[in-house]
């Protein structure tokens, strides 16, 4: 995974709450067996509507999505994160994220920055009044800055560290292989196996 420290890009205001993963990428786009190429599925239903934000310049070139609360609810599909990243997004800002989406983002290297709703409203107004405004997300300092507005964001400390270092979870876990071996030796005999 690539290291992440700061990112600067065009902010996209998405005034919607409960943006579920079926909206981010509908199920019909999940049939691919590759890890890339999901950008065409991103918000595909909404992108049919000319007035949708990503159909407008300069927002179509955005890389920081500023969304309403409860972003990423519903299905566990990591394809939602891949679709956002394949499109070019590096950061999603919301007041509340669904748990699985937040976890998937951390694994794939998308920053899910939790910003208080009043600050999200300020960002929305700024980005709508001055389309094309660049937003800088500083993971070290945990701040979001656009023009003269700077607001803090929350992110789990451990996830932040992993993103800053660009570390692979499986590699980290396998450092504790001895502990896994020891745990396996102590498992009760009545636990089920799929092969018996």
């Amino acid at each position: 995974m690539e290291k992440f420290s700061t990112h600067t890009g065009i902010g996209v205001p998405l005034r919607r709450s409960n943006v579920d993963t079926d909206q981010i990428i509908p199920a019909v786009y999940l049939k691919r067996v590759t890890r890339t190429g999901f950008e065409d599925g991103l918000f595909s239903a909404w992108r049919n509507d000319e007035s949708f934000i990503l159909n407008q310049e300069p927002f179509s070139r955005g890389s920081v999505l500023v969304a309403g609360p409860d972003f990423g609810t519903g299905s566990s599909r990591e394809h939602a994160v891949w679709a956002l990243m394949d499109y070019g997004f590096r950061v999603v800002i919301s007041a509340r994220f669904a748990d699985i989406f937040r976890g998937n983002s951390a694994k794939a290297g998308l920053v899910a920055a939790q910003v208080e709703q009043p600050d999200v409203e300020l960002l929305w107004k700024l980005l709508e009044n001055e389309p094309g405004t660049e937003v800088t997300v500083d993971l070290q300092e945990k701040t979001v800055q656009a023009k003269d507005l700077t607001v803090p964001f929350e992110i789990d400390d451990y996830i932040r560290w992993r993103l800053l270092e660009g570390l692979d979870d499986i590699g980290l876990t396998l450092r504790h292989e001895d502990a896994i071996d020891a745990f396996e030796r102590s498992r009760p005999a009545h636990k089920p196996v799929t092969t018996a």
């Binding site: 566990s76 394809h79 994160v81 699985i100 976890g103 694994k107």
Partner: peptide, 20 residues
Amino acid sequence: FGIGTSEVEHVLATQTLPLK
């Protein structure tokens, strides 16, 4: 609980998950 594909790979490889 449900997990994403990166976690599927993690469980396949290690039979564990890091969780808070």
